[in-house]
């Protein structure tokens, strides 16, 4: 893929803001916020996933849990994305060709597709299993897949730093 080796990525690294972040305490600051919010994304999604799997919080309906937890996941995800972009621009050209980074983006995409599928294709029938402890197999697969994919995003994300 030629686009991954385009000079464009080097230009990003040379933006004044990239130099500013990369050469100061801004980088570790952004990184620690990134870890904190990423943990919050996974921690809050995990609670919903475990409910979808029928493993925890069975006394609460799926809709109540989603309504109360998903906004936290989204809010934390937004902050993690901003802080992540802040770190990305300091080494853009190296990141785009880093296999761990590529895996991370692919897994994020899959996690997103899994969520979209759940939201648009499955969630409209939520009333059938909303309050039952056990959920249909399809819902369990989506919950399990979400756990798996988000753990993979974390692993790949952590691996980025070992390759760069």
């Amino acid at each position: 893929m030629q686009i991954l080796t385009a000079p464009f990525w080097i230009d990003i690294e040379n933006w004044p803001i990239s130099w500013e972040i990369g050469g100061t305490s801004w980088f570790p600051f952004l990184e620690s916020i990134h870890v904190l919010t990423a943990a919050l994304v996974v921690g809050s999604i995990l609670m919903v996933d475990l409910r979808l799997l029928g493993l925890a919080a069975k006394r609460y309906s799926v809709t109540t849990l989603s309504k109360e937890l998903v906004p936290w996941s989204i809010g934390a995800f937004v902050i993690a994305t901003i802080t992540g972009l802040g770190m990305f621009i300091t080494r853009a050209a190296s990141h785009v060709v880093n296999p761990a980074f590529q895996w991370k983006m692919a897994l994020l995409l899959l996690a997103g597709i899994n969520m979209m599928y759940f939201h648009f294709r499955v969630y409209n029938q939520v009333e059938r299993w909303n309050s039952t402890a056990s959920t249909p197999t399809q819902v369990k697969i989506i919950g399990g897949l979400s756990l798996f994919l988000w753990s993979g995003v974390m692993l790949a994300g952590r691996w980025v730093g070992h390759i760069i």
Partner: peptide
């Protein structure tokens, strides 16, 4: 092979549970 990043990820998953439990 891959032990450092794997074990670090296990550590961060633990932090995610801290976030999902006591922080929540």
């Amino acid at each position: 092979p891959g032990f450092p990043p794997i074990i670090q990820t296990v550590h961060i998953l633990g932090i995610a549970i801290v976030m999902g439990t006591v922080v929540m």
